[in-house]
Design a protein around this nucleic acid. Structure first.
Lengths: 145, 145
DNA sequence: TCTATCTTGAGACTCGATATCAATACCGAG
DNA sequence: CTCGGTATTGATATCGAGTCTCAAGATAGA
């Protein structure tokens, strides 16, 4: 069973109808690179209405099939989600994304809760850097140029 | 020397002119609650142009006089900044914000760098929860209702 | 005071996202 | 297989945050 079939099954379970438009959006989303904007999807799904793409994205977000990625500059992007709770390490040069859930943030939030009396519900963590490939490339360019 | 005078001094040092409009924006920003949108400031500074408020906010951001807060729902808010690098713990009920820099994230990012080969440059961390006051209130309401 | 230049603000514009609503497609009951 | 209630669609209008433009006005240093 392919990715798309699994997703369709989950949509059906939630009572969503499987329409041609939704299928097109799904195809487009699954074909995207590491992270993408809704607009990127729109460009590929020419025959699907703007609103429908946004609506479908929202459903996928609800179902945790995609997750949001806040870019370095604050822009909102999306990403096909691999697992439950996780965070992103985004390469600021090539856009590659590593997911991680190795959540030492857990202990951090526990300390915070103790120190502040807050009951902590959620957190956002995005990390930005340069991946190994881009670092090597940069070094080479520097050496030559 | 008041807060506003200190800020004005910093603006002057950077070569920014001190105009009536900027002063009005500053007053408004300093009078805001824990976090606020640019629109909140706009509503208070009636006689100042939309563009000017945004421009002034950008300057304040550059000078680290205010910082950005990403809300639970992804909305971008602002906050008068208390220190250098820090993170936010936002109460999802009353909007109160605690700043923290007790950055165990440091060790997390080091681990990440080692594990992934990335050179890490920046990170975003926002934590959401319910402050003690709101928790108590909620409990009382539940007991009565 | 004079003037170079920084700043202003009204308004047009961009871009991501949502609301409206008549037309249409889906799919389960019969 | 057909019918019909209901979910969905998509063109379009609208929204909200933020930027751009540019003529007019304000600032501060000489």
């Amino acid at each position: 069973m392919s990715d798309i079939d699994l997703i369709i099954e989950r949509l059906e379970l939630r009572g969503h109808r499987i329409t041609a438009s939704r299928r097109r959006v799904l195809d487009a989303v699954l074909a995207q690179p590491a992270h993408f904007s809704v607009d990127d999807v729109l460009h590929v799904t020419r025959k699907v209405g703007r609103a429908t793409v946004f609506r479908t994205m929202k459903i996928l977000l609800d179902l945790n099939i995609v997750c949001r990625v806040i870019l370095d500059d604050g822009a909102m992007h999306y990403r096909v989600s691999t697992r439950g709770h996780h965070h992103h390490l985004v390469c600021i040069d090539c856009g590659r994304v590593e997911d991680f859930s190795q959540c030492d943030v857990q202990s951090l939030t526990q300390d915070l809760a103790k120190a502040t009396g807050y009951e902590i519900e959620r957190h956002w963590l995005e990390v930005y850097g340069r991946c190994q490939a881009c670092r090597l490339l940069k070094r080479k360019v520097a050496a030559v140029g």
